[in-house]
Amino acid sequence: MDRDAVETVSLRWLRRLVIAVFLVVTVFPFYYMLVLSVRPIERLLLDPGALVVGFGELTVATYAEVLKATADGGQGFLTFIRNSGLVAVAATVLTLVVAIPGAYAVARLRFFGRRQVDFLFLAVYLFPSIVIAIPLFVVFTRAGLRGSLFGLVLVYISQTLPVSVYMLKNYFETIPVSLEESAAIDGAGRLGIIRRVSLPLAMPSIMAVALYDFMIAWNEFLFALLFLVDKPDRWTVSLGLSLLADGVEVPKTVLMAGSVVLTLPIVILFFASERLLTEGLTSGAEKG
């Protein structure tokens, strides 16, 4: 056999092996999370290596405990879910309201400073969030916004805006100008054009951006920690889970149930929209 054949054959097998390894490495932690969340803590301590759950030991008591309100002896995750959901939805909607016109303008209209806007967003996107956190911490403390979900929403909007505008802008640029021009000839004004022509055409991209914003806001940790730590009834799921995990009182299996509760919405959303999202995120990548 010549070198080419040897390489081709061995690489074919190597490739399968590597794919398998990648699958295990990426999926296993999530599988492990799920398995631990339905095992009683005593069983886990006895046999930490088990990879499957026996029928006898399967339990959902962990979920009951993590979801129940603290008054009923649970960990109050239902409240956290409500907080997280509220914050994430509000941040998503408001980001879109701000980002869509902005992205349209950057993509279509020539105005003073248009080129600088791009650079500004990149700089903002890459700037350390801890640098921004300090004065926000100060301001929110002064303004009494610490501990308010509204303050958090405001921060999340600013965090998701750069990428949202960037993604939407890229998409708007792919819509043929001639479509908008024909609408203009038919008598539509600028806002009419945006509403009747550009928006419907950009719907896939808008959905992708909405999903991205929702995920960022749902997953966010640092700002929630800085602003909400003193108010347990305002905690988001991420914050609640991390703070409870610091202590020793709550069994690990119960917290695993909490992790599943935190992760599941994101995973469902992600698998439902994977194609949309990955294409949206990398749509600008080919150029680079």
Partner: peptide, 21 residues
């Protein structure tokens, strides 16, 4: 029109990110 449409984005960015920096 361009400036008007991009204004909210700029305002939020400047208020929540620019000024804090």
């Amino acid at each position: 029109a361009g400036l008007a449409l991009v204004a909210p984005t700029l305002l939020v960015t400047i208020a929540v990110i620019g000024i804090p920096i």
